[in-house]
Amino acid sequence: MNRIHKKYFNNSGRNIFVHLVLILISFVMLVPLYWLVKTSLTGENIYIYPPSLIPKNPNLYNFVDVYYWIPFARYFLNSTIVSVIVVISNIIFNSMAGFALCRSFPGKKAIILVYLGSIMIPFQTTIIPAFLITKRLGLLNTHLGMALPLFSIIICIFVFKNSFEAIPSSLIDSARIDGLPDWKMIYKITLPLSKPAIATNVILSFLYSWNSFLWPLIIIRDRNMQTLPLGLSRFFSYFEQSSGQIYAFSILVVAPVILVFLLSQKSFIGSMLSGAVKG
C-alpha cells in the first residue's frame, strides 16, 4: 500500500507540495480551535475589535474554576463509567453483528433494512417513549440506563462488516474445517485482523457516549449521577457571559477523547501498516 503511494508521489517536489496542502488544511482546521484555546487562557471578550492574535496574560485560572464550579471528579467518573460500558458493549455486539452480516442467511436484507431504518430515526424524536421504557426497566438514574441506547452504534456495525469482508474467505474456511466455533472465530481470527475497525469503533462509541447530552439530561435527576456534558449547563448559569470558563470546560471535556484517539490511532492503525493482512 505505502509502496504504491510512494510511487504516486515519488519525488521530493511532490512531497513538499503535499506538505504545503496539508499545512494549509491544518491551518483552516486549527484557527477556530486556536481561538478556543486562547480564550480559555485569557477569558477575554472575543467581540473586541480588532481581534488580538496573541493571548494577553495567559493563565490557567479558567481551568481552576472549572474544577471548582462543578464536582468535576465525580462527573468525570460518571462519564468514564458510561463510556467504558458503551465501548465494550459496542465491540462485542458490533463485531458479532458485523460477522453475521458478512454471511448470507435468510432475512439478511430485512435486517439490514432494520438497521438502516433505525439510524434514520432521530433520537430526539423518540426520546419520550424511550424514556418511559427505561423507567419501566427501572434504569432511570443509573449508568446502565445512560449507556443502553448506545449499546450498539449501527454505523460501527457496518465498519466491522466492511472490514470483515476484506478478510480472505479462505482463512475463515480453513478455520471452520479445523472445527473452530463461530464465536472463537470472531475473537481469534476476524477481530485481530480488523484493528482499524476496532479503533474506529473505540473512537466512535467513546465519542458518542462521552458527548451524549439529551438522553442523560432526561433520565438523570440525581446530581451525583450527572455526566460532564450536563455540567456544561451549570456553567451557563455561572459563566454565560465570561466565556473563558466555557472554553476551558470544553477543552477538559474533549481532552480524553483526543487522548483516546491518539492512543488508539497509533497502536491500531500504526500496527496495521506493518502488514497485518496476510493473504
Binding site: 463509567i81 427501572g138 449508568h143
Partner: peptide, 12 residues
C-alpha cells in the same frame, strides 16, 4: 464500575 452502578440504582 458495578458498585457505582448498583448504588445509583439503589438510591432510587
Amino acid at each position: 464500575g458495578s458498585p457505582v452502578l448498583w448504588s445509583g440504582g439503589q438510591k432510587e
